[in-house]
Amino acid sequence: MKVDWSTFYQRIIEATGETIYMVTFTLIFGAIFGIMVGLSLFVTRQNNILENKWIFGILNFIINIIRPIPFIVFLVFLMPVTRTVMGTTIGTEAAIFPMAIMATFSVARIVEQNLMSIDPGVIEASKAMGASPLQIVFTVLIPEALGPLVLGLTFVSISLIDFSAVAGYVGGGGLGQVAITYGYQRFDTSVMIVTVVILIILVQIAQWIGNTIAKKLMRR
């Protein structure tokens, strides 16, 4: 049974909205916690401003075990926790929780790598000028790494669009669910094509926004 596009377009708009909603909120939480975890990881590294073998070791270990888990497995595995925290495992809000956790660790690693590209001499200079570790974080590390950081977040947001489609498979809503329900399970190629085109457009827009902001910040 093919869909009737005269009414189905509303379902597509709704699903696009859900996808944007999921990705945006996941990105916000992922960015906030990811930057916090990434900064902690960086500053506690050996010979850094707040060197701490234990904190670094634990964070590094958690990131290393979570990141390689395929998202669909992680999503299912985390369901009991999602139910406890969000009250449900179905729907858009419920999908944001596992996505945000995965995004946090992805962002954390990207943040750490961006910070490592900062010239250690610049950090030494700020130390020599009497900056405290906290001042170094906010006045040196974040501003100096901001351009690449935005590009990193753009990269993550695009993989979040991918995650949101996977979340759709287990009832998270969004374009992914539409594509699977109508395009895959009911063999409606037109739905598949439309959702894929919309996803491509979303990715392009996200990349364009990221590039524009990063360009502004890096002034190159």
Partner: peptide, 14 residues
Amino acid sequence: IGMIFQNFNLFSSR
């Protein structure tokens, strides 16, 4: 105590 460096170590973001 002011300090200057061989590679200047200026903040590229400022």
